[in-house]
Design a protein around this nucleic acid. Structure first.
Length: 346
DNA sequence: AACCCGTGGAG
DNA sequence: TCTCCAAGGGT
């Protein structure tokens, strides 16, 4: 039994659904890669990365055999780099424990790093045509509006209601199309701001059920305000090489490379030396500022002053490396450090 | 539960 | 310029 909602939705999807590189792809691996890339990331940003990724790592086995450096390089610019590290880890597990094939078992999928409740439902329904619901930001918004969900949509209580709503309308045998239709609807019609209700295939149902509260849905918890920090970075060049540091594997930009830097509270030029000593066991003499970069991360903003430094002394450190200027592109960096690197390269 | 994790586009 | 937030997961 297909609900009226699902029926309207599926008819609309056949006519208005988007054509995307991973849609109709025969390989579950392609669906997997796309779902990881699409976490908190827009379709337009993902497409070029997906196509490059599938050229570099066409199969699970080739991904598993790649170095973390190559994997992070392929991901550079897409953000949330733990996704790349987890996908890489998971590919090795799939090769070792599942014969190189993505398992069709919900529990086995859920245990792979980087695959949570949403991604299990998406892969199971889209790649394996299983009757599984899922809930992402699009479905959350669509159902919160359609059924006047006053509970905070990003709270456990609200999410439980929303999971039940989407599961309750799931059409047997067409869960993949149903889930993707709701995502397309959320991304092109039921927009966060200024929804295009006149083009919506569910307008009639929505008007009947939503009590006119659509513009006030979904209810979301208030955000915390973002702090601001100032950092100083040291640019140390010698014989056509520059000193780079590898970040810890966890946390912000985990496993990526950067110019040695530290947080400063007073005048950057005066504090840089002590900051670098604390973080990198370096002795340096600062010179003139090379470039200043501002950047807004999700949870804080930074201003980074990059200084040319004269190196006096350094202790042994595995995470420090002298890199030829022409080879900086081979070292995965976040946006800020890539910007500094570009200034150096000319 | 609350917090952390990137980047870019839209308004 | 500034705020919002996007096919979430991990801790």
């Amino acid at each position: 039994m297909t609900s009226r909602l699902a029926s309207r939705l599926l008819n609309w999807y056949r006519l208005q659904g988007r054509t995307l590189p991973w849609r109709g792809h025969p390989d579950p691996y392609a669906v997997w890669v796309s779902e990881i890339m699409l976490q908190q990331t827009r379709v337009e940003a993902v497409i070029p990365y997906f196509e490059k990724w599938m050229r570099l790592f066409p199969t699970v086995k080739e991904l598993a055999g790649a170095s973390e450096q190559d994997v992070l390089n392929a991901w550079e610019g897409l953000g949330y780099y733990s996704r790349a590290r987890n996908l890489h880890k998971a590919s090795k597990i799939v090769v070792e424990k599942h014969g190189g094939e993505l398992p069709r078992d919900l529990k086995a999928l859920r245990e792979l790093p980087g695959i949570g409740r949403y991604t299990v439902g998406a892969i199971a329904s889209i790649a394996f045509n299983m009757d599984e619901p899922t809930l992402d930001g699009n479905l959350r918004r669509v159902f919160a509006r359609l059924f006047d969900v006053s509970e905070a949509a990003d709270s456990p209580a609200g999410e439980k209601i929303l999971w039940n709503l989407t599961a309750g309308h799931l059409p047997r045998g067409q869960a993949g199309d149903y889930n993707q239709a709701l995502m397309d609807l959320g991304a092109t019609i039921c927009l966060p701001r200024n929804p295009r209700c006149l083009l919506c295939p569910l307008m009639e149902i929505c008007e009947a059920r939503a009590n006119g509260t659509q513009e006030q849905r979904p209810v979301l918890k208030p955000r915390k305000e973002t702090p601001f920090f100032t950092h100083a970075a040291g640019v140390m060049t010698m014989n056509g090489k520059v000193l780079l540091a590898k970040r810890p594997s966890k946390g912000l930009l985990g496993g990526m490379w950067e110019f040695p830097n530290g947080r400063v509270d007073g005048e950057p030029a005066e504090e840089l030396e002590s900051a670098l000593e604390a973080g990198y066991q370096l002795k340096v003499r600062t010179g003139e500022a090379l470039v200043t970069v501002q950047h807004a991360y999700t949870h804080f903003r930074v201003m980074v002053h990059a200084f040319r430094c004269e190196l006096v002394n350094t202790s042994a450190n595995e995470n420090l490396k002298w890199v030829k200027l022409e080879e900086m592109a081979d070292y995965p960096m976040g946006k800020v450090d890539r910007q500094i690197a570009r200034v150096l390269h000319g």
